[in-house]
Write a protein that binds this DNA or RNA. Structure first.
Lengths: 152, 152
DNA sequence: TTGTTTGCAAATACTTTGCATATGC
DNA sequence: GCATATGCAAAGTATTTGCAAACAA
């Protein structure tokens, strides 16, 4: 049994646990996603999946991928599809982002400022910047969550 | 002279060096950007700038901000406005991204897997993930650049 | 004066929404 | 059978492009 078979099995199990239906669309989209090694866009997955499932809609691919992220079986890399955001702060700093509300907090941390990149990356890239990205849930969103759960 | 005054002066100098014209729009957009501490979107900058410069167009704000990024006086934080991209790789890994072609390479590096977040961030966020993002120019894009410059 | 920049308008790309139909459980 | 998921179409949002007029150097 290959690593991908195991991944697929875990996926099916997680669907059942979370009460998500195991539709052929979901299975085939999941397969396409874990077979891809290039961080695909919706369109890329759509193109691939249509070869074996020509009637699938772009829309379903899009919604299914977002669902996967919400389930925690996939994740989004930049970009997130949301509008561009800018910053004028050129000093070396790092980011903490709230996955709930999208707020990004800058922070400074000496320990992170001199990380060494692995040799293969140093060879492949002319490195311009190394930053640490922290993802989490901010205190404001945490409070909202607690209120919600206490109301139910 | 404040820190922001110095930043503004450096900006004007860089414009002159790079042959960029110092238009009132650029100056006011730059000011709005460095005054903002919330990683603003195009719309946010537009709204702010219009208060003192009502005839400015959203379009100019957008193009100017992108120009700033190209000049290196500003940068883009996620999202980048580009379409969503997904990955099914759930193992702890890190990303190296080419700023030229947008390619994202996954890599594994033990040294990065157990970074400690600074106390204030630990307090503000329930941390879910800590990853290192490396930005640079990949070998393919580097070759293209060299070809371009040798043709001129 | 000259080439860059701006503002406008239209076009495009991507995502989201609403709803009827289909389907997994 | 029932709730969820899908496919379609339309609407919404963000970004990009082309071009004439305005402007910094």
């Amino acid at each position: 049994m290959t690593h991908k078979d195991r991944q697929r099995e875990r996926f099916e199990q997680q669907c059942r646990e979370q009460g998500m239906k195991l539709t052929p669309q979901r299975l085939i989209i999941y397969d396409a996603l874990i077979d891809a090694d290039e961080h695909p866009t919706v369109d890329m997955i759509y193109a691939r999946v249509r070869q074996t499932f020509p009637t699938i809609s772009l829309d379903t691919v899009h919604r299914t991928l977002v669902t996967f992220c919400e389930m925690g079986v996939a994740s989004m890399v930049e970009g997130t599809g949301s509008p561009k955001r800018f910053e004028g702060n050129l000093e070396l700093h790092h980011h903490a982002r709230c996955v709930q509300c999208g707020k990004i907090v800058d922070f400074y941390h000496q320990d992170y400022d001199n990380l060494t990149a692995p040799p293969d990356i140093q060879q492949e890239f002319s490195i311009l910047k190394k930053t640490v990205h922290i993802e989490g849930i901010c205190s404001t969103c945490r409070q909202i969550q607690q209120q919600d759960s206490s109301c139910s």
